[in-house]
């Protein structure tokens, strides 16, 4: 940072930083590119700064996802004089999704639905019975509901299940050849590559059982327990660790931080969910607003950003209360 006489220097650095962020967004770097990138970063501290800033700005543009598929740039082009062109702010992918969802509801019992997350992504999925599945990064789960059973096959990754009570329809998560059966509870299942399947029970009781023609008695796993199930004949489950303290469970589930996506979850529930991530609470006094369903992807650390995005899409007002909470109102 010696000679700053050229006004175009900043532009050149920004230019290079934007090019690297776009390149990284495209996919993994080749070894040569990786060296070139490291070399460029190390050449001048301003390079590293411009790069960090470019990443932050690119991440910021991700908020555009909340605009939904109906986004028409023409709606947002600013007319001379500063007024909006057509001013038709979208009313949310949520409404469209709700309509589509109603039509599909009857098929939901028959057709398995696959949910996936990419690396670094997390999704909160409201299932048709009111249970909520939270998928961690790089996970795949198939959900199939029948009148007799609620089935989830965790193909890869990790998921937390908050199961709605339904005594007549057990909720069964299958990972490999291990079944985890619950009636109404909260538990996480982890299936990472060839590692033994892990169950962590946060609330209630689940039964863990290896699939077999001659089934052995299920292993009953109570709350605050971690069970590691090894898929070998003759052993249904082993290495049960009981009495895990709630803090440890919370830590194990800390992957739920970061970006979260909601599908058809009501604002009231989301406000509750945000409480887990931030001291800044979202206050919704109007029950009509609290019942509005929202679909979108947001930073779990940013309740204000969430409230702003939602207020624009649902035609609400948002702001800070004197006590530092985020409020949403009509």
């Amino acid at each position: 940072m010696s000679a700053h006489t050229h006004g175009s220097q900043t532009q050149d650095i920004d230019h290079a930083a934007a090019a690297w962020v776009a390149r990284l967004d495209r996919g993994a770097l080749s070894p040569e590119e990786d060296r070139a990138f490291a070399h460029w970063l190390a050449a001048d501290i301003r390079h590293a700064g411009a790069y960090a800033r470019a990443e932050a700005i690119f991440a910021y543009s991700e908020r555009a996802k909340a605009l939904g598929a109906g986004f028409d740039p023409a709606d947002f082009r600013v007319a001379p004089g500063g007024a909006f062109g057509r001013r038709r702010l979208f009313v949310g992918g949520a409404a469209a999704a709700a309509v589509a969802g109603a039509g599909l509801l009857s098929y939901a019992y028959l057709l398995p639905t696959e949910y996936r997350t990419t690396r670094g992504e997390m999704r909160v999925i409201r299932l048709t019975d009111g249970s909520v599945m939270t998928l961690n990064t790089a996970s795949i789960a198939t959900v199939r509901y029948t009148p007799l059973r609620r089935e989830v096959i965790l193909r890869e990754g990790e998921a937390l299940f908050d199961v709605a009570k339904d005594r007549d329809r057990p909720f069964v998560v299958t990972a490999g050849r291990i079944d985890v059966r619950a009636v109404g509870t909260s538990f996480a299942v982890r299936r990472l590559g060839a590692a033994p399947m892990e169950v962590l029970v946060r609330e209630g009781i689940v039964d863990v059982q290896r699939q077999s023609r001659a089934p052995t008695a299920p292993l009953r796993v109570p709350a605050f327990t971690r069970a590691v199930a090894v898929d070998t004949p003759g052993i249904s489950a082993e290495a049960v660790e009981v009495g895990i303290d709630p803090d440890a469970i919370a830590r194990q589930l800390s992957w739920r931080e970061g970006m979260i996506a909601f599908e058809g979850i009501t604002l009231g529930e989301i406000a509750e969910d945000f409480r887990r991530y931030s001291d800044t609470r979202i206050i919704i006094e109007d029950p009509v607003i609290a019942a509005m369903p929202v679909t979108g992807r947001f930073s779990a650390y940013d309740p204000q950003g969430f409230a702003r995005a939602v207020s624009v899409s649902l035609g609400l007002q948002s702001g800070m209360t004197p006590s530092g909470m985020v409020a949403l109102w009509k």
Binding site: A69, R77, A307, V312
Partner: peptide
């Protein structure tokens, strides 16, 4: 600051044609 989403939308809307199309597909 509450119009941030609108700000993002406006910024994308203001991009040159092809760039805007690509950016919308990527980000929205």
């Amino acid at each position: 600051d509450r119009d941030e989403l609108r700000q993002v939308a406006q910024a994308i809307a203001g991009l040159p044609d092809k760039c805007r199309e690509v950016f919308t597909l990527r980000r929205v």
